[in-house]
Design a protein around this nucleic acid. Structure first.
Lengths: 217, 217
DNA sequence: CCATTATTCAATTGATTTATTGAATTAAAG
DNA sequence: CTTTAATTCAATAAATCAATTGAATAATGG
């Protein structure tokens, strides 16, 4: 009887470990992070992560086996997506825990933003959207904006920011966001905007955090 | 510049993977689950999991390196505990995701409770505590009860249930809980109580879920 | 039907992980 | 100081994992 319980426990933790194993590789964590911003092809994931297509494909097979992703074929393209939004929440919590426990994460964050960690939070954004004439811009690739974005945001992919500057009055106050706490697009956008004299600030979080907190507009 | 960002990304995901690697072993997941019920010695963990002391110690070193646990010496005993309650939340979310994605988990749950999955939830418990004359009993080891328990619960460790029966009127309605969705103590207690004619039912969740939901008494 | 494009598969190599066994270490008791 | 108890360490063997390379497959376009 006690052996029965032991076997059941071993079985159930073996299943839980399927999720854990999928999350044990830095490469797969990055792939999952990218996919939580929207569905993507193998080729797109390869380009974004600078991994070979074969390597991306292998890691995606591992994620498929753990049921964390699903895919559909569109022509020769295999479009992968997360199978559950719970995976996004799990990734966020994992990152929160890593920030809490690992000093190295803090150090790397400072390198991400070269000492200039100043940003506003989602609560601060809400204040400003209600009380000030600010524009919120989403500097991720357009496809990710189209998949999901913070309500009230305009899509200005970082690669197109320069062209968009002409359309903004110089006194316009701007908040820029991208994929979240470990993406540099928003910081780069703020640098660029400030160099043209705009009052710009970075939003710390992205659409995933917005969804979890469910802050209404 | 693009290489800089790539190195930063590799670095940050390498750090996140430290957490993922710690969670990739079924053994370590069980150890973390036990520790989220309260601090324990290596010897206690070895007995509960039926792993050798040396193996438990090795896995604990791995968890130490990932900063998921801390320990203090008490005489010859090393008492290990979780370093953050965020780890409990992460484990719960991981289990929730596994239940959602993996059919094998559903099958194993049915084997846990031999087809009799009937239980009440925390909401149902709250109703009954307010509207009926039910007793809530915690059938985990006494040490875990002392560390944390659902308010209003009495400690009746499963090994002492038989002796406690004398003190309960036969018409007493009883709700029993243990460590959560993957623990059999509550189901065993309910079987035993019912065989003595009591009206008993199992609570699905444990103290961890209660804390996350923060349902006040 | 052939060429192209995107993706997956298979084999290989080197690195990492896991459990065991016996030794070593740490702390307390006598 | 010696013995005991609890824990950790080190070495080993077997299994698993990850990236690369080249081949194979799948789907489309001409």
């Amino acid at each position: 009887m006690k052996e029965d319980v032991r076997m059941l426990k071993d079985g159930i933790y073996g299943q839980f470990a399927r999720i854990g194993k999928a999350l044990s590789s830095p490469r797969r964590l990055e792939l999952l992070d990218l996919l939580s911003q929207g569905p993507k092809s193998v080729e797109t994931l390869s380009r974004e992560t600078m991994m070979s297509v074969a390597n991306v494909s292998q890691h995606l097979q591992t994620l498929l086996e753990a049921r964390l992703v699903i895919f559909e074929k569109k022509g020769t393209y295999a479009i992968y997506r997360l199978s559950s939004s719970t995976t996004s929440r799990l990734l966020l919590l994992m990152q929160e825990l890593a920030e809490e426990l690992l000093a190295e994460v803090k150090q790397l964050r400072e390198q991400f933003y070269r000492g200039e960690l100043e940003a506003i939070s989602l609560e601060g954004l809400q204040d400003r959207m209600q009380n000030e004439d600010v524009i919120l811009i989403d500097v991720r690739p357009k496809e990710e904006y189209e998949y999901a974005h913070i309500p009230g945001a305009y899509s200005v992919p970082i690669t197109e920011l320069e062209q968009h500057l002409k359309q903004l009055p110089p006194e316009q106050k701007i908040v820029a966001y991208c994929r979240g706490r470990y993406c540099v697009y928003a910081a780069q956008a703020v640098d660029q905007l400030r160099s043209h004299g705009y009052q710009a600030v970075r939003l710390e979080e992205g659409i995933r955090e917005w969804k979890v907190l469910s802050i209404p507009e």
